[in-house]
Amino acid sequence: MKILVCLKQILDPDIPPRDFAIDRDNRRAARGSANLVTNIFCENALETALQLREKAEGEITALTFGPSSAEDVLRKALALKADHACLVEDEAGEYRNSATTALVLAAAIRKLGEFDLIMVGREAGDWGAGQTGGLLAEQLGLPSVSFVDSIEATADGVTLRRQTELGWEKVEATTPLVVTITNNDENVPRIPKTRDIMMSARKPVTNWKLSDIDVTCDDITAAGTALEVVDLAIPEKTTECEFIEGDSIDEKIDAFAKRLASIVQSA
């Protein structure tokens, strides 16, 4: 089975809140002191792919679209024994939304060849839009299944388990197919072995510019207009403290419940 996993490099979402800053003029997060990490759901996707490869033969290609620093997420994927890695470099480094990303990824995938499974994280820890997977399927003209947390290979395709609000759904699908991956207890990302980290530095990474995959700035701009960020701000956190009065404990509980209900209703 040929698997392609899309990975996104993002600002570490685990930084302390007071270290988080935004660049309001350009309507994006400021790098500040934050590290760059692989988006967690992308890591879940890679882990799911690795497990699938352990059970069914196959090859894994890791693909990312981002600035040159995004090579780090590919090196990490290579350390985890992905077979190939490809970076499409975003020279301008502008903010890209899900639509532009899907456009670029689709172009790259077409050039990389045929894949049975294309896996993306359910959403990214920076913007949390959760759109890239669906848009990518659209671009590639493939069916897609979202919120998948486990995959099994069958004779003529795959069986997928997807999380829903009510429980799990089992889906049988034929490939090729795009799936978005969510997390569960079984796809907690593994950590690489030290020797593999050292070896990964020596493995080749395909490095493409946008021109290499025949995407022009106009294409990007056109796709980008689908969505516009109008303003960006960090919500202010305020704490209000209110004491519930009452003569007896029963009265207090009663008043407390009523107050609680009114807050819930107004919210």
Binding site: N35, R190, I191, T194, R195
Partner: peptide, 22 residues
């Protein structure tokens, strides 16, 4: 166990990943 097998307690793995990243 850590460097050749990457098999050790999960919370220690978290500490190591945090050391690497942060």
């Amino acid at each position: 166990q850590v460097m050749e097998r990457a098999e050790f307690p999960q919370q220690m793995q978290d500490a190591i990943s945090s050391l690497e990243g942060r």
